[in-house]
Write a protein that binds this DNA or RNA. Sequence first.
DNA 1: GCCAACGTTGGC
DNA 2: GCCAACGTTGGC
Length: 169
Amino acid sequence: MAVFSYPGQGKSSAIVPFVNYWLIKTEAAMYSIDDLARDKRVPWTGIRNYQARNFIRDGMKVGDLCLFYHSVAEPGIYGIAKVASKPHADLTAQDKKDEHYDPKSTKENPIWMCVDVQFVKKFKRPVSLVELKAERELGGMLVLAKGSRLSVMPVSERHFKYIVEKLVS
DNA sequence: GCCAACGTTGGC
DNA sequence: GCCAACGTTGGC
């Protein structure tokens, strides 16, 4: 939480949630923005990369907004999701039948974390990877970096707002 | 389907 | 701790 004071209101101030911004990746064939629109809220499981896990564990807070990115087929940003829970253990890692089962994960040391994500909106039109790359304003976005393979990564407020307020509206 | 770029694993 | 082998990701 961060304290913001509003100009013109003397000494008054208000506590408002401090929002972080993220980009979460998925293959549409596996789980798409339409699937999230249908399900409304799901645990974002299956992240098996330590750097991505650390972003989830150490950075994600309820209310954070996520660009919803489809990789591989027609790559681009398709909408927005919201972090709807605190980070918690990803139990699919302890499920032998799950495709993301990890024998190193135990009840005592779950290793892998996830948050619940909630559907916010699907863009009227997706912002393709080609379009993202063409925007000078978006230079430095992690997802555009060569070799960027993280499935969860932070996004700056400036980049987030440029995409949502300038590119898709 | 190809292949570059990564991350992880395991032998030493 | 090094590093080759291997598996995966993801753009094209």
